[in-house]
Write a protein that binds this DNA or RNA. Structure first.
Lengths: 222, 222
DNA sequence: TTGTATGCGTTATCAG
DNA sequence: CTGATAACGCATACAA
């Protein structure tokens, strides 16, 4: 049996509540008792059980994130940065990958909700109605990332894929270019790509649209 | 307040234990009551609280994995595969990245243990004594991956980096090659790389050793 | 087969 | 400032 708060309390001759207060850095504890408790914690090698804490405090210290693929650089870097900052604050990341499928995203959201995360990170602003319903019903904070939207679930962090593409084509066109091509990964469409394509088509000039067969095998022929 | 087992039990006019048994697919429940309970579960939109379950059952359904970096393809692919299979079985992955630092690995192991995972996945077989102590004391199943070792903590899945390198050099040498070069990432040494270098040095010939300044910027000059 | 009661380790409430 | 004590939501041993 692992050492728990009660053991620390007994050794320190204090109540369990006091140990808990020391653990959570409450201000309402005298320096002497705090020191005594901390000594006992070290002596017993006490290690808090965050599962129990999560149940009691109704706060797990976990944030769930869903990205298309773990190995996809763009998202991996975001996850790494997120994870770093969160970890410094005692929060862990729960990562799921949906492979550009919003149905799979819905499944992951369903499963993740059972673990009672404190917040959600979603990629893109394109979800199934049920996904949106579930998350809104949960009342959890949400960040949708990678694309802007007019009606976010909660908050969005992203850029305007449509406007970016439009400006690119506009620039090229204003410089006299007339034959342009798009090389992209069209295997699994998503809202970010859709917006970019919309931006391109605004001034299509002589547009050649090709795509990579997969993210690794490129096939181009004009 | 979210709907819990007690609510389902009340609606179905059964005991909480029965609902729990239905949830966990116990064989000891009559088809009629099972069906009735499942109907009530759907009607109420009941969603189990895995935090509470984890505390009661002493099993969280989470496995923690530590890799050097999330975006590093080799490990990302393993995480993705792991995650897929585990997810099918209701288990979630808790990923941490240590950036090739075994001290950071130790810190992550310490933090992860508080979340009571059911198992550990570690990259490499090179850890701090404290890391090994902590994990052994936890009694959790462990897989060390990417490199073989003679005294694993628990079990190992990997290949012999030393022997692989040795055989490569041997082959080249036997074909008459005498000037060879190693291009590698020497920023953060680890046991896998150490083993490979050992294998190269066995038959060094005229060995030129260079390295990439970082994983993205390559600098080679012979 | 089913219901009841107890425990899991913490936090939080409420008196002292 | 501190100590009991009641939740938290579920699993499980024990009875029925």
């Amino acid at each position: 049996m692992r050492v728990k708060i009660a053991d620390v309390a007994r050794l320190a001759k204090v109540g369990a509540g006091t140990v808990s207060r020391v653990l959570n850095g409450s201000r309402n504890v005298s320096p002497e008792t705090r020191e005594k408790v901390e000594a006992c914690i070290r002596e017993l090698g006490y290690m808090p059980n965050l599962v129990a804490r999560g149940l009691a405090a109704n706060r797990t210290g976990m944030i769930s994130a869903i990205i298309p693929a773990i190995g996809y650089t763009q998202h991996a870097e975001v996850m790494q940065g997120l994870s770093d900052v969160l970890h410094e604050n005692g929060i862990q990341l729960m990562i799921g990958h949906c492979g550009y499928s919003i149905e799979r995203e819905e499944q992951i959201v369903t499963d993740f909700l059972e673990r009672r995360p404190d917040a959600f990170y979603l990629t893109g602003a394109w979800h199934t109605p049920q996904t949106r319903r579930l998350i809104e019903a949960s009342g959890l904070p949400v960040v949708e990332c990678s694309n802007l939207t007019d009606n976010p679930i909660d908050s969005v962090v992203g850029y305007d894929n449509y406007e970016g593409a439009r400006q690119m084509v506009h620039l090229l066109h204003s410089r006299g270019h007339r034959r342009m091509a798009i090389v992209t990964n069209a295997v699994d469409p998503n809202d970010r790509m859709a917006d970019r394509l919309k931006g391109f088509w605004l001034r299509r000039a002589n547009l050649v649209w090709t795509w990579t067969a997969s993210s690794s095998a490129t096939r181009i022929a004009f």
